[in-house]
Amino acid sequence: MTGLATILGATGFVGRRLQARLTAEGWDVYAPAKGDKSLFGRDMGVVFYCAGLTADYDRRPFDTVEAHATLVSELIQAGRFEQLIYLSSTRLYDGQAAAELDETSPLLFDVADPRRVYDLSKALGENLTLTRTEGRGAVARLANVYDWEPEAPGFLSEWLIEAARTRDLRLDSSPHVARDYIHLDDVIAALIAMSEKPAQGIVNVASGDLTANGEIANIFLQAGWHVDFSRDISPAPPPRSDNARLLALGVTPAPVKDVVRRYLEGLKA
């Protein structure tokens, strides 16, 4: 499937790769600049809503609400789109009292916690997308996305980038911290698959497994790197994200340890 696509947040980590992939596949891609409200007066085709804040959400709470909820509200009211795919996060599952959650699980938040502005604003964006688009909206809840392109965000991305510079790694984390990691290319494949099969509701774009830092460190050690961690804490793991809906779309994420192993082999070549 090809056609007209609009990417909000096209200069971001996911948006850049998505724009490149859609363009290569023959889509007509429109990537408006941040703050360009003229987009609401034109046909937008399939909208991939990649705009948002991550690491600095607590320092910029009002910008976070603007990016996660206000802008998507304006877009939905304009209504000039065929489909809206809103990028959210499996971070909404953190702190929930369950070992495993799927997309139908109800979410609970402490509204008095200032750091919940991220979760609450994303949840509002999800709600508007699912309930105010006349069946044209879907939500992609992304797990911990990683890559090794320059300035790729996130702990594992920074770890992989640093591995290209040195074989002696000192990481500011604990070997016992576990996360659900999914490679950026698998995320892009998932978003395109969602555009080809509308009305998917919420989809966990996740590997479905939690992998501890220590497990990944063992891959580095076997490949000839030295890895030290600055901390030795054992926090409670986040809930595992069920990814049956993602698999049903025909997207099977590559296991993170396999991807890391191939990446290190390429560095040694």
Score class of each variant (00 low, 15 high):
Lys122Pro: 01
Asp119Arg: 13
Lys122Val: 05
Thr129Ile: 01
Tyr118Gly: 10
Ala123Thr: 03
Arg136Phe: 05
Pro114Asp: 09
Arg141Ile: 11
Leu124Ser: 09
Ala152Leu: 13
Ala143Glu: 09
Gly137Lys: 01
Trp148Pro: 04
Asn144Phe: 06
Pro153Val: 09
Phe155Asp: 09
Glu151Trp: 14
Ala143Asp: 04
Ala123Glu: 06
Arg132Gly: 00
Trp148Tyr: 14
Thr129Lys: 00
Arg115Asn: 06
Glu151Asn: 15
Ser157Gly: 06
Tyr146Gln: 07
Glu134His: 13
Thr131Asp: 00
Gly125Pro: 01
Asn144Leu: 12
Trp159His: 09
Asp119Gln: 15
Trp159Cys: 08
Arg136Ser: 04
Phe155Tyr: 13
Val145Phe: 09
Gly154Tyr: 06
Leu124His: 04
Ser121Lys: 01
Pro150Lys: 12
Arg136Gln: 05
Arg116Cys: 14
Asn144Tyr: 10
Arg136Leu: 03
Leu142Val: 11
Ala152Trp: 13
Gly137Met: 05
Val117Asn: 07
Glu126Ser: 04
Asp119Cys: 15
Ala143Lys: 10
Lys122Thr: 03
Val145Gln: 10
Glu126His: 01
Trp159Asp: 04
Leu124Thr: 12
Ala152Met: 12
Leu160His: 08
Gly125Glu: 00
Leu160Asp: 05
Glu126Asn: 00
Gly135Ile: 00
Lys122Asp: 03
Gly154Asn: 10
Ser157Thr: 09
Pro153Ile: 12
Ser157Glu: 12
Ala123Met: 05
Gly154Glu: 08
Ser157Met: 11
Ala140Trp: 02
Ala152Tyr: 11
Thr133Pro: 06
Gly154Leu: 08
Asp119Ile: 04
Val117Tyr: 09
Tyr146Phe: 15
Arg141Gln: 09
Asp147Asn: 13
Ala138Gly: 15
Thr129His: 00
Glu126Val: 04
Trp148Arg: 14
Pro150Asp: 08
Thr133Ile: 02
Asn144Lys: 12
Ala123Phe: 11
Glu149Pro: 08
Gly135Thr: 04
Leu142Asp: 08
Thr129Leu: 00
Ser157Tyr: 05
Gly154Thr: 11
Leu128Gln: 05
Tyr118Met: 02
Arg136Asn: 07
Asp113Met: 04
Ser121His: 03
Arg116Gly: 00
Glu126Pro: 03
Asp119Phe: 06
Asp113Arg: 05
Asp147Leu: 03
Arg116Gln: 15
Glu158Pro: 05
Gly125Ser: 00
Ala138Met: 15
Glu151Tyr: 13
Trp159Gly: 04
Val145Asn: 09
Glu126Trp: 00
Pro153Lys: 12
Asp119His: 13
Glu158Arg: 15
Gly154Lys: 11
Arg132Phe: 01
Leu124Met: 14
Tyr118Asp: 03
Ser121Leu: 02
Val139Ser: 05
Ala138Gln: 15
Glu149Thr: 14
Ala123Tyr: 13
Ala123Trp: 13
Arg132Ser: 05
Ala123Gly: 07
Pro114Leu: 09
Arg141Thr: 10
Phe155Gly: 08
Thr131Trp: 03
Tyr146Trp: 07
Arg141Glu: 07
Ser121Glu: 06
Leu156Ala: 03
Arg141Leu: 03
Ala138Glu: 14
Ala140Arg: 05
Glu151Gln: 15
Gly154Pro: 06
